[in-house]
Write a protein that binds this DNA or RNA. Structure first.
Lengths: 343, 343
DNA sequence: TTGTAGGCGTTATCAC
DNA sequence: GTGATAACGCCTACAA
């Protein structure tokens, strides 16, 4: 019940800088200096002001700060991802970093392909005077949006961008290498015909993962059969549908590597439905290792992408103004060592 | 690239009310009136101002509005839920409603049991001058927070509150009846020994669902065996653990009803691990029917709770200031008609 | 090291 | 119906 003074009987009044300054016996500007950790404040004065502010439970008005100053103490996450787990991890990671900095996160989910995307982001910037943005694919590679942000001089960080790394700070894992290593793992088990379910074509990571898969096949001297590579779109249904198509081949694969866990789960469901034993007759690998991977049974072999850490790092880059890029380590989680069935 | 004027060569200047008023040949206040749909503006004037505002791509500053006026055009979602699917649906539903109203959503995830919860919400209110809050369990029933909100006179809406419906607007389904109907369904299949995995005790809905289950047993003249009711906490792991305990009973259940899909999935995983055939030897039912239910295999029988609709309605109540309560319909999704195995 | 004056962009109040 | 003018709470500049 602090942070507000009672005025007379009824009305509640906000505790302002003015109140703090009066109570501490200094000017408003001095309080402001202490608040923003500026230099040139006597140690004793600083301590006294801080104490009073704490005691009065003073909380600076975000609106007033945004209006008067250059910062709004708010950043936005612009995120479109079909996987709730991904979104959840992103938000949690960003929040964890923001909390320490006293910055608030505005969630700006958008619909992929929405024609309003550009306008929405423009409105977001103009209306809220956001301090910065964190973008996730596929908007990370939307030329119009990137130009807009440059024009408005709004700081932004991209997670898993498709390219143009010089354009902004970014965090990512080596998707190409991750996919290659997983494919190599399947090959090492003896698989030669490996089905691959690619991610949504709008996402740059899809191409990176597909390329990694292909590279590993080439490195092992296995000729890529185009029929084994199917176009999915990152969700459960497409994983199941692609798997059905793979099973219908005259010479079906002995292993399936899906570019996301949701699709891997779809593959698993399809296999069960068709009476194909997993992992006895079929080896399934996924990508992401969201909590979802722990839910499906039997456990899938997956590439674990540290989504929460990527998010945390992205927020860190944004808040510190670090223009750099950060590559994080992925991890292969090999829960399944099934060799291909002999025929 | 509109919404900003170029000044001289370089600097970008915000388009303000002043610009609009000058261009339209009216006073600032008149523009403000049009913006806020106030009365007493000539139809012709109104149209002209609106046109100019649109043409100049004018976007009022949230900060300035919050500072000068009573509204900040931002609402917050205070949500702690172990299920990413639930969080995702909540956010999406709220956003859908807010979009039409030109209001922004601030996501405020919190850790259940965090001692900072109260302070966090207090800080949120004081710092951002939020227009309102949407609460999800268990904070819906946190007396301290409820008192705080009343004291600050901040409008709020609760989703699935445990009681005290007069305290605020609210949206919910009839959890008691939903659980009772699912239990009745299992009984109708011939099950007499039904395991029940209860939700986290901090959530009021847990008690409601458990009570509904018990009521249905009583209505069918089945004596409740305390050993068949286990305490879970809404997550995958607890579902698996409780199921293991149920299997260890001398007289194990022929069906299991878990109070959430995550726990049902855990039950399923445990059954698979122990070689119990589902649904041949065991019938599993869940609650929520998030997308998760579609991922696990075989599909579970579940109570479908319309989370996104609950969220949308909650936002609607908040934005319209409607103090009422809204009960939404749940749905039983019966994918499984397994009768208990004969022994 | 500290304080004063002015303004950020909008809404509220009160005249006209 | 419409328009001056004063807040709103804080920060930036500049002065002391």
């Amino acid at each position: 019940m602090t942070g507000w003074r009672r005025r007379g009987n009824r009305a509640l009044a906000r505790v302002t800088i003015k109140d703090v300054s009066r109570e501490a016996g200094v000017s408003i500007k001095t309080v402001s200096r202490v608040l923003n950790n500026e230099k040139y404040v006597g140690a004793e004065t600083r301590a006294r002001v801080a104490e009073v502010a704490r005691r009065l439970n003073f909380r600076p008005s975000v609106a007033a700060r945004a209006l008067a100053g250059r910062r709004s103490f708010q950043i936005a996450l612009v995120c479109d991802n079909p996987s709730p787990y991904y979104v959840y991890e992103m938000q949690t990671g960003i929040r964890d970093r923001c909390e320490a900095a006293g910055v608030r996160m505005i969630a700006q989910p958008y619909d992929r392909g929405s024609s309003a995307l550009y306008a929405d982001i423009e409105a977001l910037i103009d209306a809220t005077q956001i301090d910065g943005l964190i973008l996730t694919p596929p908007v990370t590679d939307h030329d119009g949006v990137l130009a807009l942000l440059a024009d408005r001089a709004v700081p932004f960080v991209r997670v898993s961008p498709g390219g143009k790394l010089a354009l902004s700070a970014a965090t990512f894992i080596d998707n190409h290498r991750a996919a290659a290593e997983m494919t190599a793992h399947l090959i090492s088990l003896g698989h030669r015909r490996i089905g691959f379910i690619a991610g949504h074509p709008d996402y740059a990571v899809s191409g990176q993962r597909t390329a990694g898969h292909r590279a590993a096949l080439a490195a092992a001297g296995i000729e890529a059969d185009p029929a084994l590579i199917r176009q999915g779109n990152f969700d459960f249904a497409s994983g199941a549908a692609c798997t059905e198509a793979l099973f219908a081949l005259a010479d079906p694969p002995t292993a399936i590597f899906a570019a996301s866990d949701d699709m891997a789960a779809g593959a698993l469901a399809c296999a069960h439905r068709q009476g194909v034993a997993v992992p006895a007759a079929l080896s399934i690998a996924g990508f992401d290792d969201t909590a979802l991977a722990a839910v499906v049974w039997p456990p899938l072999t997956t590439v674990r992408q540290p989504v929460r850490a990527l998010a945390y790092q992205a927020a860190d880059l944004l808040l510190t103004g670090d223009p750099g890029t950060r590559e994080l380590a992925f991890e292969l989680v090999l829960r399944d060592s099934t060799a291909p069935p002999s025929r």
